[in-house]
Design a protein around this nucleic acid. Structure first.
Lengths: 366, 366
DNA sequence: GCGCATTACTAATACGCATTAGTGATCCGG
DNA sequence: CCGGATCACTAATGCGTATTAGTAATGCGC
């Protein structure tokens, strides 16, 4: 048989030359005259029952100082079975050249909340997927190296997302996505916010209000319409499809004639939804200006969201702000909950009403 | 006595409830009908002698795909391997509320270059906030989880940085930092760029040029002065301390009288350095405006950098642009080189000359 | 057809730390 | 003064991966 000599250790290559190896807990333990486990106990946040005498504690801490010991995060995280890493995946590049197109405002909240909870962030770039990551149908797999992952934008392929969810991997989508069964998400409460804007207009005396929206089926759009109609109903105002103007190209279809027609019919307030392009608001704003409306004297305007950058210099529109940093923070909270195996937290984040200066009392009609 | 049942395993807390754990190499191995070691061999970059049959290789790769296996970064690191993660650490929050103060332009380049090389980025958070991420003297230590780390801003504590370097951990500082022995950095070549601006002015016929700078010792400042003086010398113009106006508070000290004095002495061009606050340029710009100088007819102005945001709407200053995205990319290139055990790459990145509209031919003197 | 190479794997670690069962001591009540 | 409780620690193990020694199977030369 084999004689019991010590195996010439497999498992490790010699340490890279020239690299002064840092002290380990074992060295600290030797210097302090205790066991490695004791060192770990002293250094680790006190868990439960374990008690360490003050004397031992000091010996260990002294040794730690003398040797300049610092823990190896890889080992800690491996042993603790959690990496303290949250993924952030955006299908487009996280830092596009043009900051206007970035998720920056969300990331502000994401970073803050993650930091507050002791998580670091891993940024995955789905767009490139060059180098190591396979671009194939499994491009999303790489996110599994984190404890959970946040998805930004509506371009993440549904199939892969659901696969992750089905595997029990914690996933949170920033932006409503409830067509995907089981996918956790956080989103802004456009319904309540839109309703509130209508209530504001109604309180100012407006009886006939029209919503201008683009022609898509995104939840963000239908929610706003929903809230708009709910607001009308609450205020006891006439609702129905006639109060909603829907167009695939508002800048072309929202003509001066149409606007004058509405005014003649007694409409005194107009509400536009916010979209990627900002076209609805731009069209409304443009037509009102063209017709020569003195806003808010002749009529009131409101915007269900924030104005596009090119109109940022104009008067502040009455409406609401999407609290992007708070959305980011809420997403991290939910993700952290899922990672911890808890229930998902509240998905809806309230929008802040913005008084603005484009809405005023309804003009007294002759 | 106890019957020989399996020890109720110490060493591990039960996995968080309800969480199906990610697949490991062991699961892949079982599915493929091979050993864990084989999986590791197939996935790892082919080392030496080991050979794997194409058939086995495929079985393993199929199993990897089916299970969505991704290596655990902590385990990889612990086993002395790479994990394709580059750290990004900024002492201040990476995404401050005000995008103006962010490292965004650098990150554009960092992300691109990292993606191109197959690295993902880990954003180490909690630098500013006192979150769970520990503020202690070892706040920087967690970056060791990554293969290397990029540091932004000049607030990273020197001691800890040097400790990382001394331990052989790949570190690159974005921004010159050569007072720290052994620290690799990348920075903009302010010397050449400043020299070029002076050359441009000299070519326009200016014979007397004054530099306005703030009163600090940052390399970015001294480099600009150095390049300025070098430019004068090259052009055969009078140099010396008289051509440099140095003030801790330029807006107060750079008075209209002083400016008139210079003009009377025959100075026809003024150069300001760029600083965090932009005060030098603001003072110069303000005084020139106050004195009623028609720029560039009466005198030329130049800015060694970019104007502060509040002056972004004014005329484009002649000077140079700091190529922030390229700096980010260069930093990643250097970091990747260090991780691969190669020599550091070129640390200096050239700035782009910006013609602008504030410099013109020197006025003909009576 | 026997030794020696080569091929294609697997077994057995080691990495550094966290956790928990176990083990002497010491204390305490009755 | 004995059994149990408490205290203060240590031993043993596992986390998931990389590496290397070992091995069975096959090929090959002479």
């Amino acid at each position: 048989m084999e004689e019991p000599r010590k195996r010439s250790r497999p498992g490790r290559a010699p340490a890279p030359a020239g690299r002064t190896s840092r002290p380990r807990q074992a060295e600290v333990a030797r210097l302090a005259g205790v066991s490695q486990a004791t060192v770990s106990l002293v250094l680790g946040a006190r868990k439960q029952g374990v008690t360490i005498s003050e004397e031992t504690r000091q010996k260990v801490l002294d040794a730690v100082r003398d040797l300049g010991y610092v823990p190896d995060p890889a080992a800690s995280r491996l042993a603790a079975a959690r990496n303290n890493l949250l993924g952030v995946f955006s299908f487009t590049s996280t830092f596009p050249t043009d900051v206007q197109h970035s998720y920056y405002p969300f990331l502000v909240g994401v970073e803050q909340e993650a930091a507050a909870r002791g998580y670091d962030l891993v940024l995955f770039t789905g767009s490139s997927t060059g180098g190591a990551g396979a671009a194939g149908p499994n491009a999303l797999n790489r996110v599994r190296l984190a404890d959970g992952c946040l998805f930004l934008g509506r371009h993440a392929p549904a199939g892969e997302l659901l696969r992750l969810v089905a595997d029990g991997f914690p996933v949170v989508h920033l932006g409503r996505r409830d067509e995907l069964e089981g996918l956790a998400w956080v989103g802004a409460d456009y319904i309540s916010a839109s309703q509130e804007v209508v209530a504001h207009l109604a309180a100012l005396g407006h009886r006939r209000i029209v919503l201008v929206r683009e022609d898509d089926e995104a939840p963000a759009s239908t929610d706003r319409e929903h809230g708009f109609l709910k607001g009308l109903e609450e205020a006891g105002l006439p609702g129905g499809p006639a109060t909603v103007f829907r167009s695939a190209d508002p800048e072309r279809d929202l003509t001066a004639e149409r606007l004058r027609g509405w005014l003649d019919e007694g409409v005194t307030a107009f509400v536009a939804e916010e979209t990627d392009t900002g076209d609805a608001w731009r069209a409304l704003h443009g037509a009102a200006h063209f017709v020569g409306i003195d806003c808010p004297r002749d009529a009131s305007l409101a915007l269900l969201g924030s104005p596009p950058p090119d109109l940022a210099d104009g008067p502040v529109p009455t409406g609401f702000d999407v609290p992007r940093p708070q959305l980011g923070a809420a997403a991290v909270r939910m993700l952290a909950a899922l990672v911890a195996g808890e229930e998902a937290t509240e998905p809806l984040v309230a929008c802040a009403f913005r008084p603005g200066s484009t809405a005023g009392p309804a003009p007294v009609h002759p």
